[in-house]
Amino acid sequence: MTTAPISSGAELAAKREPHEDYVHQHHWRNAADEAEAAKFGMWLFLATEVLLFSGFFCAYAWGRMTHYGTWREASHAYLDWKIGAVNTVVLLLSSFTIVMAIRELQLARKWRAFVYLGITNLCAIFFLVAKIALEYLPKLQDKKLPGANFWYYNPHGTHDHLFMSVYWISTATHGVHVLIGVLVISWAMYWTARGRYGPKNFMFVENTGLYWHIVDVIWIFLFPMLYLV
């Protein structure tokens, strides 16, 4: 298969792809309504995601407020901001590429879209691998674990186990979201290659993109809070 776009009408007629025959579901009056509703529903879901993470932000605010003597120290002592910064850039890049993937689908260039989705997925996998290999595993070995399992010698702090709790549960929940993102983007890649998505039917990829952006936005907040200040 070539990644070059199909450029002639004759070729297109010969290779009619599934997305061109897309028909909306029976209970919708037209495809526009269906697409708008799908996006609206996705936004509602994203609102629930934001509120889900607000619990971690609130726990962070609480720790920052009541234990702030040790909170910042623990952040500087235990977390490597360079890893966090690289991961931030990687996530921003992946957000950009998934936007581009949607653009290519809207312009009916499925192999370009496929490549963009692939880059997004590679970024996501890079994020996860960096997180696990460079952050989680060393911390597991040092027993820098959440709460009661925190077993690391620290000469001056007593509440860094709580900081580590917030760090672990928020980044792990975020990591699970990234993992789900990898699976969903892979699904989108598979069906893009099979020609399901195109100008008439790209709602799934667009919603995947929305989901992926919210994962990015949450990391945009987690990064300075946990790693920097």
């Binding site: 234990h67 003597g69 040790t70 120290e73 001056h156 702090g157 007593t158 509440h159």
Partner: peptide, 8 residues
């Protein structure tokens, strides 16, 4: 209040 809790 500036000191860490254990310092206090």
């Amino acid at each position: 209040p500036g000191l860490s809790i254990v310092e206090q």
